[in-house]
Amino acid sequence: MIAESGALRRLGSDPLRLALLAIRLGPVLILLLLVVIMSMLSPAFLTMLNLGNVLAQSAVIAVLAIGQLLVILTRGIDLSVGSTLALASVTGALVYSAAPSGPVVVLAMLATGMAVGAINGMGYVLGRLPHPFIITLATLSAARGLALWLSGGQPQQGMPEIVQAMGGGSAGWLPYSAFLVAAVALAVVLLTTRMVWGRWIYAVGGNPEGARRAAIPVDRVVISVYVLSGLAAGIAAIVTSGRLNAGSPTFGDLAELDSIAAVVIGGASFLGGRGGVGNALVGALMIGIIRNGMNLLDVDAFLQPIVIGVVIVMAVESDVVRGRLESRFRIARAARA
């Protein structure tokens, strides 16, 4: 949690500060707690093989969540990422059958993702829509429909080796997809903390009108986060298609909800302007571990969504409590000064 290290240094022993610190670090603590509980409940959990599994299973959500994070930072939402993933995978499979070249297929998948993202971003900004919900709901439907139509509703077998390696390969117990996630995360950390454009993303989410008055190109910043979220969906398509050696119109079903849940559970604010890559990764791992753990423990698979739902409510509530504590903290500090 890059953004929190400074906070850690400044927070002292005041009870209000401790409560605030606990909430800010909450997602990480819960993640650690989950690991401890799982390793006590199931000896299989803390094995290299299983941890590799967890990482592989979390990779798709993690990549999507990092893209979704950028959108949510600007107070937006991208509902289309699951469908975009499916469309990109089908496009990749069709391109592969026509031109069996690894780089061409990879590029086709990434470009498909970015194209859908561009439609979202430009439709939202240039169409002067009040909220991105509707436009991304439209592409959620349309991209899935296009994927079904292009594939005739059937999975298209066959992916180039590089895609298969990304989805299913591993170095020892560490899946390649984990490295891919790490690379994406690193790039976005750089964007959000070290690049001007990244700072602008936070400014737009924190105060759109203020950002506009600071002469920041708000429209282009907003469009860019949807394009990047689409790009993330394209990368996620590579992982999914590679693992199953196919492109299918049914891939990524409801993945948009997982990605949003991961961002929120991880501690980023749903109200925009607050959160980092760390939050998205923590959230994705929490979902991954909950699913993996419940499988190991033979819990009915139908119960998993219920647990995820409860966790989402807890996460959003803690965001609200955090906001309230922070304003009390501010008042207390102002009173002392």
Partner: peptide, 15 residues
């Protein structure tokens, strides 16, 4: 309009 409350003072100053 108080700029972006979650960004740092320095970030806001040079936004």
């Amino acid at each position: 309009v108080e700029l972006a409350p979650l960004l740092s003072v320095a970030d806001n100053l040079f936004l």
